[in-house]
Design a protein around this nucleic acid. Structure first.
Lengths: 120, 120
DNA sequence: TTTGCACTTGATAATCATTCGCAATTATGG
DNA sequence: CCATAATTGCGAATGATTATCAAGTGCAAA
């Protein structure tokens, strides 16, 4: 456990949005001003492998991260603002597993993103 | 409508898998040996904007394409082989729309990928 | 507390998919 | 056919991410 990693972890914990590597770098610099961008990438990869972080691609070319301990959820992206909304639906979870089973597979992972605009 | 575009379209029509830009380039060379990689990218971007092609990211760093006229479907990726299986589920479609509505959004687009391994 | 040493780091170069710039070529309307 | 606009091929540029490598750091054993 090093200074750099502590800084990145704190930056991540303080982030309610789903930051990308650049945002994390900026935020981590507050705790360790000399931290390098490469260290952020290395640490996020490490945390992802450890299962402590989830990496997402919301389609803007760079990966977004969030802590992984939370209960299972999916994302709705507000196309008007870019805001990311988390949601959970039990029926949906069950249906995903059911569909995979029907096709002859054990579901190992999945990814669902809804893209929408505010009603009316 | 140029030679290059005809070659790319034919390559795409002949592809049942979900080819990436490199695969399309190789296949299109069969019809137009001098075609450039950049032309494939340009053409795919064009076709996507026209709504004739769908672009997917199955998590291997490069985009995969498929014709867009087909009926709505999602994808299940076989983690053991990389094979991509298309499926459609009416309940799932309805549920996506319903969830977006519940959150106050009109669903404009969505992306669902299931990753699984063959049962037992 | 030192020391040893494996693990990290910062800086920078390398990679990989994709996009750009531009001169040369081709499609197309008249 | 001709003129103009659109498209191509090539190679360079881009942007996110990863690799390299010498220097620095955490930490367990002495």
């Amino acid at each position: 456990m090093t200074t750099a990693r502590r800084a990145i972890l704190r930056a991540l914990e303080n982030s309610e949005d789903h930051p990308d590597a650049l945002m994390l770098h900026d935020r981590a610099k507050e705790f360790d001003p000399t931290i390098a961008q490469a260290t952020v990438y290395r640490t996020m990869r490490l945390l992802e492998q450890e299962g402590l972080v989830e990496k997402h691609d919301f389609g803007n070319g760079r990966a977004r991260y969030e802590e992984a301990e939370k209960e299972q959820h999916d994302h709705l992206i507000n196309l008007s603002t870019g805001e990311i909304i988390e949601f959970h639906d039990t029926d949906l979870e069950a249906l995903k597993i059911e569909i995979a089973k029907r096709l002859g597979f054990d579901l190992k992972d999945h990814r669902l993103e809804l893209y929408g605009v505010p009603k009316e």
